[in-house]
Write a protein that binds this DNA or RNA. Structure first.
Length: 317
DNA sequence: AACGCGTGGTG
DNA sequence: TCACCAAGCGT
């Protein structure tokens, strides 16, 4: 959960998750949809699928015990160099380093290391430094302390060097150049996108569709709709979209919710419209289903769907 | 190696 | 409002 996600965001998810899946066996035996439901809103949903698969393999291949060596750990899905180091040092008290965004920042400033820290050759230099620094006694505490320093004092912007315990030995801090490290890297341009979604309700709930098995928000449920042109009649475009993509003939009504949403390099404006099916009530198209709003979390919906639902007021139709 | 993958906080 | 960044990993 903590991969690319802050502690504050993770904490409530973590506690709820452990309530439902208290053991590796419980996680391994639970349906994937139940796992995704507890992940709903946290993002990077591949992490949930990887975690579930890793639990299955720990049960099947390791007798239910987490491996305590780097080779076997990194063979589990979702566990890379960083996570293996975190598990080994924190859980098993092994003298193994961690290198995350926080440690990268602290080390780059301590040693005035310029360049892209995520690429070679600097990446190797940082791992070597981290490995040489970690002590044999309480390596987990040391690693967590290093990460915590980066998350609090040695912050990305406006670091508080005046209250830093490493101020006297920090190259960048002593030079008053902490803001120059690590070297900022160019980012891909963000593309503005406009999305329209249809909120179609009946006595059986909301009509939702399951996204493709691969790609963006893979396998998650959403309100039917998609990208529309910035110009033009949004309602008409949405009706055409539902007909083309889902063979749904609908009348689009009033706007229910509008909000901004960002995914990777896309900056989206999402507009949700009330809509109703035209003509005789037919079977819903394949991949779609009437969803009870009370069960919405059990379908692994994304935060986009949750925001739309909030706009609807979470009321049973 | 470079890119895709979510969401929330911050200045 | 918006760019930037976060306890990275898989392909």
């Amino acid at each position: 959960m903590l991969q690319q996600t802050t502690v504050q965001t993770v904490l409530p998810y973590y506690h709820a998750f452990l309530e439902v899946f208290p053991t590796v066996e419980a996680l391994a035996e639970s349906p994937l949809d139940a796992v995704l439901a507890r992940w709903s809103g946290l993002g990077y949903y591949s992490r949930a699928r990887n975690l579930k698969r890793a639990a299955e393999r720990v049960v099947e291949e390791h007798g239910g015990s987490i491996p305590d060596d780097r080779e076997r750990l990194q063979r589990l899905p979702g566990i890379g160099e960083y996570t293996a180091g975190a598990i080994l040092s924190i859980a098993f008290s092994r003298r193994e380093p961690v290198l995350d965004g926080n440690v990268i920042r602290v080390l780059a400033r301590l040693f005035l290391l310029a360049g892209d820290p995520r690429k070679q050759p600097l990446r190797n230099v940082l791992w070597t430094l981290a490995a040489r620094m970690v002590p044999a006694d309480d390596p987990g505490d040391f690693n967590q302390g290093l990460m915590e320093l980066g998350a609090t004092v040695c912050a990305p912007r406006s670091p508080t060097c005046g209250s830093c315990p490493l101020a006297t030995i920090c190259g960048a801090g002593r030079a008053g150049r902490a803001g120059e490290f690590p070297t900022p890297q160019p980012r891909p341009v963000t593309v503005p996108v406009r999305l329209a979604a249809a909120v179609i309700s009946s006595c059986r709930g909301f009509l939702m569709v399951r996204r493709a098995r691969a790609g963006l928000l893979a396998d998650l449920w959403e309100f039917p709709g998609g990208e529309i042109q910035r110009r033009g009649d949004a309602q008409a475009q949405l009706a055409r979209l539902l007909l083309d993509r889902h063979s749904l003939r609908v009348t689009v009504g009033r706007e229910l919710a509008r909000f901004g949403h960002s995914i990777t390099n896309r900056r989206m404006t999402v507009i949700a419209f009330e809509a109703r099916l035209e003509g005789a009530r037919r079977a819903v198209p394949p991949g779609s289903s009437w969803v009870d709003p009370g069960d919405i979390g059990s379908y692994g919906v994304s935060s986009m769907a949750l925001k739309i639902l909030a706009g609807v007021g979470r009321q049973r139709p």
